[in-house]
């Protein structure tokens, strides 16, 4: 395969995993995590014994078809769910509850507080979590809004913004908190195709800027290859690790991207064939 095991990360040298000593211990360590949740009639196992490690400045993608528990896994890292088995450690501390060191960016457009302006939304996040106060909070919020080109709309209320702009505010809010890891739950899935592509480019541009660590959930193979430097492939019912792959080294290398896409597609597709055969038997 063309993707070498030691892939050169985007923005070379910025954060090549395992090349320098402090990166040897993972930032986020998920070990044998089984997640279950109750519906009215069933106890559903969302993921079964999933393990993966996220290193500093990773753009780590959880990829899989619907029902593979990738969103549930992300919510567990966010601290909204407690694993029934296994453990999750961020900076060697077990995750027990939601906190501002793991900022979530959701798919839904209603994640911004409608009673606050764009700027207030970012500032309030800093205030409420106790990260920054007063002038310092406003300054940082402005700086991050500038990064996502929303300075002009700082005093608008969320309902005046388009879907793409709302997501940009949510990303700015998440980044302004400077969390250990940014958790993104299909943040571009509800956007139209053109906006989605633009947002993906913008996210990568932002990463080039600050090299934040992001855990990104998507069901689009295409998006996973474009956004991620490392891709965890999950199989459905219940979610289990199928593979962990390096993404293409150079996003401009379309041939490599296409080959990887086909490889992932085959891996996901082979599953479905097996399932169908089982049904026929």
């Amino acid at each position: 395969m063309t993707t070498s095991p030691l892939a050169i990360s985007r923005a070379d040298g910025g954060a090549a995993p395992a090349s320098t000593a402090p990166d040897a211990t993972p930032l986020l360590d998920v070990r044998n995590v089984t997640l279950q949740y109750k519906t009215k009639a069933h106890l559903v196992t969302a993921t079964y014994r999933v393990s993966f490690q996220v290193h500093r400045s990773d753009r780590f993608v959880l990829l899989g078809p619907s029902g593979c528990g990738k969103s549930t896994l992300l919510k567990a890292v966010g601290g909204y769910l407690t694993p029934t088995e296994g453990e999750m450690r961020l900076k060697e501390r077990t995750i027990t509850r939601p906190g501002p060191d793991r900022m979530m960016v959701f798919q839904e457009f209603d994640q911004l507080l409608p009673w606050k302006t764009v700027l207030q939304n970012v500032v309030f996040a800093l205030h409420a979590s106790g990260r920054l106060r007063g002038r310092a909070a406003t300054d940082r919020a402005c700086a991050y809004l500038d990064k996502v080109n929303l300075t002009k709309l700082a005093d608008s209320y969320p309902h005046m913004l388009s879907g793409g702009m709302k997501q940009r505010v949510a990303i700015a809010r998440g980044m302004a908190m400077e969390p250990d890891v940014l958790l993104m739950d299909e943040p571009f899935a509800a956007l139209d195709a053109l906006t989605r592509r633009k947002m993906q480019d913008e996210l990568l541009r932002l990463w080039d800027d600050t090299h934040f660590t992001v855990l990104f959930v998507t069901h689009s193979i295409d998006e996973a290859i474009k956004i991620g430097n490392r891709i965890l492939l999950l199989s459905p019912h219940p979610g289990q690790v199928k593979a962990e792959l390096n993404s293409v080294a150079d996003p401009a290398d379309l041939a490599a991207a296409t080959r990887l896409e086909q490889k992932i597609h085959r891996m996901l597709f082979s599953d479905r064939v097996e399932e169908e055969e089982r049904v026929h038997e």
Partner: peptide, 17 residues
């Protein structure tokens, strides 16, 4: 909405806050 609740908890807000 559930999303707003999660956002609030994400900030570390609990109880009266």
């Amino acid at each position: 909405s559930n999303t707003l609740r999660m956002v609030g908890h994400n900030y570390g807000l609990r109880g009266f806050g």
